[in-house]
Design a protein around this nucleic acid. Structure first.
Lengths: 340, 340
DNA sequence: TTGTATGCGTTATCAA
DNA sequence: TTGATAACGCATACAA
């Protein structure tokens, strides 16, 4: 046998190598790395230590191919302008990874890319696809479902009435009712509801719940305006267009926003372009409690979702193979600051 | 032949199925999905159409196992508080996906998790590991390199002197020099340099370049303070502690920040806690041009990195297998707004 | 241009 | 408890 140089570039060390070094079969080596395999503690210890010195780690790619599970999920994101996305991604990946799941991040480049993105995910044998975007409307979901390429389709942080879908979200109705009652208690009388894109049927729930509570109390529907994207810059523009000619006349006394991304833009406009005070002239309420909401610039009264609980619940669901169709709602809490 | 019910759950359709339906061998089916394979256009068209109706797509997991490439990269992120991370992730995943690469998002949960995170990535057979965090100091990089489990280790948006490492970053020295000269041209005389965590040796470059330019011009070193994390809230606290007792006395006339996350916090403190004007009392300069920097609340003068170019270059490097050790620097541009 | 043998590193299942 | 056989779905290299 001739001398073998240590390979210059990374050479795969497999279970077989460890087996040869330990004097057991390669199947026993694999067993040593499985949680509840029938293997004697002694051989396992011997194998683990040999593996360590050889630099062996199980190849999850091969494991996924051979089994029905990959321990991999795809996370589809289509909206990177909303700062809340960063928070959600952190919580989700933290919960997933700390419990042994890997995450494939898929940027759905534009509206028409949703279907290709879903296909892309399925090509990597993911155990579940998680949607945390906004472009995923009912039509897209239905298409995804009919393709039947997913063990699980999970809508995160957005409710969905779609069947065969797992949705994990905050209870929008309860949350919005709490917001509405807070607004009423503070004796605001002329609300403006600032809603997101009209196409998102699920999100209409917040707007409609607010309208329903208001009408039930005062007999009239609140004023409402829609913003085409969850984007502070655009929201600031729309707020300016809506309010610029009404200063001193019939200005709203509170702007209730579908989320913080919209609320931050509204605050910028009220303070810097209309030169009015918050909350004295106009109060503002948001939803999500993004990091900037607590900044002294905003001090935004908003609604915080229990993202950590929701993320952990998501992993629970992942670990129950039979769970493919459920609709779990969480209760968050209103965070009261100075903006309303 | 008995009637076959459409399987209730997703059943894998493989190249073999398509081959059977088309009357060719399954290797020919695979060829139809390879870009420059020698196959007649006619058979390819026939195969593609059959594949479509059967719902076949190549399994990338199996492809990765069989070949030396996976077309998968790991993106290690350790710092989700900096809003710039969201922008970087968007640009990177966009460039990667639009050119056929998938991204594994790995949240390095805490400092000690870096090595396990790297291992985790290698278990999925990634072609490269991209680091965009801040906790990845030289020690960690060295450990990662010695493990030799990576075809490529790419430090993105941060320069690194490490050998056997690919770094793709903005030219910190040139950028900081431009900032320093701008500050000098505007006749600021008493700068305070607000730096990030002291442990990040690479980032010291900005601070030291600024100090060098200043000393060369005025013969003295500028004042400097360090913030333990790239976090606006913490930065606001440190700025307050540093400046609170100096109002009216020896206040700096400009605060130059290592990045925008720090700058936003500084602005909050100057305006809302010290109740001073920006830029009249104290000017502020940042780095990164995060979305909030253009908000009317901040109007931050800052330095924008050419992230799109950098991301595309990264994919170029990915596609050149021989490239494993290079240090590419990009020139960005100073975005002048009202804060300085 | 097309078909074939072999290997990638696991898991599942059965046998010892 | 351990060993052995057969997939998993594809790529590589070569032969036809």
């Amino acid at each position: 046998m001739h001398a073998v140089a240590k390979p210059d570039s990374f050479d795969n060390v497999t279970a077989g190598d460890v087996a040869a070094a330990t004097g057991v079969s390669r199947w026993t080596v694999n067993r040593a790395f499985k949680k509840d395999a029938s293997i004697s503690p002694k051989t396992r210890a011997k194998i683990i230590s040999a593996a360590q010195s050889l630099g062996y780690v199980p190849d999850l790619s091969a494991a996924a191919l051979a089994s029905t599970r990959s321990n991999l999920v795809a996370l589809l994101v289509d909206d990177f302008t909303n700062p809340h996305k960063l928070v959600m991604m952190e919580r989700l990946t933290r919960a997933l990874r700390s419990r042994g799941w890997d995450t494939l991040l898929v940027n759905t480049l534009d509206r028409d890319d949703t279907a290709p993105a879903l296909l892309n995910a399925s090509q990597r044998r993911v155990d579940a696809t998680i949607l945390i975007g906004v472009q995923f409307d009912d039509e897209v979901l239905a298409a995804a479902q009919s393709a039947r390429r997913f063990k699980k389709l999970i809508i995160f942080a957005r409710s969905s009435s779609n069947s065969d879908t797992i949705s994990i979200a905050v209870d929008d109705e309860a949350a919005t009712r709490e917001i509405a009652h807070y607004v009423i208690d503070r004796r605001y009388k002329r609300p403006l509801y600032l809603a997101g894109p009209r196409t998102i049927s699920a999100h209409l729930l917040r707007k409609e719940t607010f309208a329903a509570v208001w009408q039930h109390r005062f007999g009239v529907l609140p004023e409402s305006v829609s913003v085409g994207r969850y984007d502070s810059i655009l929201s600031a523009e729309i707020a300016y267009d809506t309010l610029r000619d009404r200063v001193g006349a019939d200005l709203p006394d509170v702007v209730v926003c579908e989320n913080d991304a919209l609320a931050l833009g509204v605050i910028d406009t009220i303070r810097h372009r209309l030169r009015l005070r918050i909350p004295e002239d106009i109060a503002v309420v948001g939803f999500d409690d993004v990091p900037a909401a607590s900044s002294p610039n905003y001090r935004l009264t908003t609604y915080r979702q229990p993202l950590t609980d929701m993320s952990n619940y998501l992993v629970d669901v992942l670990e129950r193979p039979e769970a493919t169709n459920l609709d779990r709602k969480f209760i968050g809490r209103l965070v009261i600051r100075e903006s309303a």
